[in-house]
């Protein structure tokens, strides 16, 4: 964090730190978004299990529920769930790969200009986030078409 950023916020960033935290890296924002999408998806999962159970009431209630889900507000919600899934899954692949040591490069002496494992795997981050964006766009076509 740059000193002036903290000073401007009275020494504490508070909720502002979620969207702007000075010198945080790209991966730090991926970490935040991974958490937000993860918590959102697990809460949705519990609702989804309940909603899926309504099919046991028979065909008419089920078809009625599916018709309700064609309303714009549910379409937007569905898109957010899909986007959250696409991001969480692809960022999760990055986390799995780096957790097991892939794309981090070999350890080296700290000689300027420094090469960190985060910088070494940044191209992977960009590729996976591009793939997430492609999936999110495809999801948008699927859901809103």
């Amino acid at each position: 964090m740059r000193p002036e950023v903290g000073a401007r916020a009275g020494g504490r960033l508070g909720p502002k730190g979620w969207v702007y935290a000075g010198k945080y890296s790209f991966e730090r924002y991926l970490y935040t978004l991974h958490r937000v999408t993860g918590v959102g998806l697990v809460l949705y999962l519990l609702l989804h299990i309940y909603e899926t159970g309504l099919r046991l009431r028979g065909e008419v209630p089920w078809e009625g529920l599916m018709r309700l889900f064609t309303a714009p507000v549910f379409k937007v919600g569905e898109f957010l769930v899909f986007a959250g899934f696409a991001f969480h899954a692809l960022n999760g692949i990055r986390l799995l790969l780096t957790e097991f040591g892939f794309f981090l490069g070999r350890p080296s002496q700290p000689i300027y200009p420094y090469s960190t494992s985060v910088r070494r795997h940044r191209p992977l981050s960009y590729v996976l986030m591009f793939a997430a964006a492609v999936f999110i766009v495809l999801g948008g076509f699927g859901i809103f078409s």
């Binding site: 569905e78 899909f82 899934f85 495809l138 999801g139 076509f141 699927g142 859901i143 078409s145």
Partner: peptide, 9 residues
């Protein structure tokens, strides 16, 4: 997710 959301594609 592919079956449930991308079938229109």
């Amino acid at each position: 997710m592919a079956v449930m959301h991308l079938s229109p594609l």
